[in-house]
C-alpha cells in the first residue's frame, strides 16, 4: 500500500515537470487532468481508521469528477470554441522554467524533512509533493502569457493545496472540503467565460494585450 502511495506522489511531481515542459496547450490541459485524476486516489490510499468511509469516498469521487473530468472538459471546450491551437509562448523559456521547477522540487524534498510537523505525516512524500506542486503552479501563472495557461497554473496550485489538505482530512469538515471544490469549479467557470470574452474582444488570448491599464 505504502509503495503504491509513494508511486502516486512521484507521479504527481513528475507530472508537474511534464506540464512545465509541454509546449502544447491541449497536451498541458490533459496532463493537468491526469494529475487531478491520479491524486484523487490519494484520499483512499491514505485513509486510516480515523476516517469515515463515506467522507473519504466522497472526497475522492468529488476530486476525480471536478479536477479530472469536468474542469479539463470545460477548458478543452473553451479552447475548441475559441479555436485556439497555437503553442504556448512562455515569457520564460521552457528549459529555464523546467530548471526552476526542478530546483523547487529538489528544495522541497531536501528540506521538508526538517519541517517540524506537529502531527505524524501519513507519508513522507506528502508535504514535499504538495509544496513542489504549489511551486510549479506559481511558475506557470507567472511565466505564461496565454490566459488558458494561466488558468492551468492556478489549477496546479489548487492541486498542490489539495494534496496538502490531505494531511488534515481526518478532522477537516466535509462542508469545507466540498466548498473548496465547488469554489474551484465556479472559479474556472467564471475564468472560462472571461477567456471567451477576451478572445472575442481581442481576437487573441494573449494577456500581453491586456496592458492598457497602468500607471
Amino acid at each position: 500500500m505504502a509503495l503504491w502511495t509513494g508511486f502516486v506522489f512521484v507521479l504527481v511531481v513528475g507530472l508537474d515537470l511534464v506540464v512545465l515542459a509541454s509546449s502544447r496547450l491541449r497536451g498541458a490541459i490533459r496532463t493537468v487532468a491526469f494529475q487531478g485524476a491520479v491524486m484523487s486516489a490519494l484520499p483512499l490510499l491514505l485513509a486510516s481508521e480515523h476516517h469515515q468511509t463515506v467522507h473519504v469516498l466522497a472526497l475522492a469521487l468529488g476530486a476525480l469528477v471536478v479536477k479530472g473530468v469536468v474542469i479539463p472538459g470545460m477548458m478543452l471546450w473553451a479552447m475548441r470554441e475559441a479555436a485556439i491551437r497555437r503553442e504556448l509562448e512562455p515569457i520564460v523559456g521552457f528549459v529555464p522554467s523546467m530548471v526552476l521547477g526542478a530546483v523547487g522540487v529538489a528544495l522541497a524534498f531536501t528540506y521538508s524533512g526538517s519541517l517540524p510537523l506537529p502531527i505524524h505525516a501519513r507519508h513522507t512524500l506528502l508535504v514535499p509533493s504538495a509544496l513542489s506542486t504549489v511551486w510549479t503552479g506559481l511558475i506557470l501563472v507567472m511565466t505564461r502569457r496565454k490566459a488558458v495557461a494561466q488558468v492551468l497554473g492556478f489549477l496546479v496550485v489548487e492541486n498542490g493545496i489539495f494534496v496538502f489538505g490531505l494531511l488534515l482530512s481526518d478532522f477537516m469538515p466535509f462542508m469545507v472540503e466540498a466548498g473548496v471544490l465547488l469554489d474551484l469549479l465556479a472559479a474556472i467557470f467564471v475564468m472560462g467565460i472571461v477567456i471567451f470574452h477576451i478572445n472575442r474582444e481581442f481576437a487573441s488570448l494573449d494577456t500581453r494585450r491586456l496592458t492598457s491599464l497602468r500607471d
Binding site: 506559481l138 494561466q150 492556478f154 496550485v157 472559479a187 475564468m191 472571461v194 491586456l210 492598457s212 491599464l213
Partner: peptide, 13 residues
C-alpha cells in the same frame, strides 16, 4: 475586460 481578468487572476491566486 482587462480589469476583470487582472482582478480574477490576482485575487484567485
Amino acid at each position: 475586460l482587462e480589469a476583470t481578468w487582472k482582478y480574477l487572476m490576482v485575487c484567485s491566486l
